[in-house]
Amino acid sequence: MTSEIILSIENLKTYFFTKKGIVRAVDNISFDIRKGEILCIVGESGSGKTVTALSILRLVESPGKIIEGKIILDEDNLLELSPHKMQDVRGNKIAMVFQDPHSALNPIFTIGDQVSEAISAHKSCNKEDASSQATQLLELVGIPLAKERYHDYPHQFSGGMKQRVVIAMALACHPRVLIADEPATALDLTVQAQILDLFLELRARFEMSIIYITHDLGVVSEIADSIVVMYAGRIMEKGGSRDVLGNPVHPYTKGLMGCLPSEKGIIIPIPGTIPGLINPPAGCIFHPRCVNALDICRMERPPMTKITDEHYVSCFLGGVNG
């Protein structure tokens, strides 16, 4: 697990400037992803997972804005690239699969057109080449009769098949990093499992790194090599999958695992809800819901503390209660 680091996010802050105030959707987060690994970002909805993903591709839309930080890919800071150069990164070096396949495809173009478009955006090739490559991609992601269905429109496919098309689009230029934002959430349970298998297969085949965003710890335990636990725009705990799941340190991570049905079938929920991000609580953002909160938790933001080389936690109680 010590292959080279491919993408590294440092002190990223993405804020939304709304009329009601500044929403700190992503507030000073850092993490690395290594070649060929699957990194899962876990957290409840509203924890800033999707904004993190969009920030990496610089696709955050107004009123959102990346305030500071570095996103380093191949020694380039993506946040400093010209819009033109950034365009060349999107879909080419980093690609993304979105949550809802029903709305992620343009309803008035054929799926073949939309896949081949992703190819010709970055490779200089003629139409026939692009379309034959697109057909291969559709076959690869498991669209039956890909050649025949090339000229079909999105509404003629099921949700799972649409998501496969979206994945084919993302694979078009064999990206080094694939970001998947809850790619299975909008789908049926059986289809979810198929999509997960597809990701595992693709990772093995192309040695891509995958950032897999989900709120489902069950999925995480199946596929993750490393884990980033996010809460209210901040990272609570990060590390290797075995460390984080086997030895969770942060009370929030423990709480999340408490939400998994235990062997006895009891679900233990985390009390309270995610705080408003305009006036977040001072100190540790999790303290209002934390059963172990100390006085210092209410005053100071806990630093990222190293537990092992591969395991970090942002908690004053780090290691104490662990």
Binding site: V89, R90, G91, M96, L105, N106
Partner: peptide, 22 residues
């Protein structure tokens, strides 16, 4: 504001193509 426009941008299409086509 549609999702498919974000998909088109994520593919790395130039903004002019995103606007004109999608």
């Amino acid at each position: 504001n549609k999702d498919f426009v974000r998909t088109a941008r994520a593919k790395g299409l130039p903004e002019s193509v995103v606007l004109r086509k999608h």
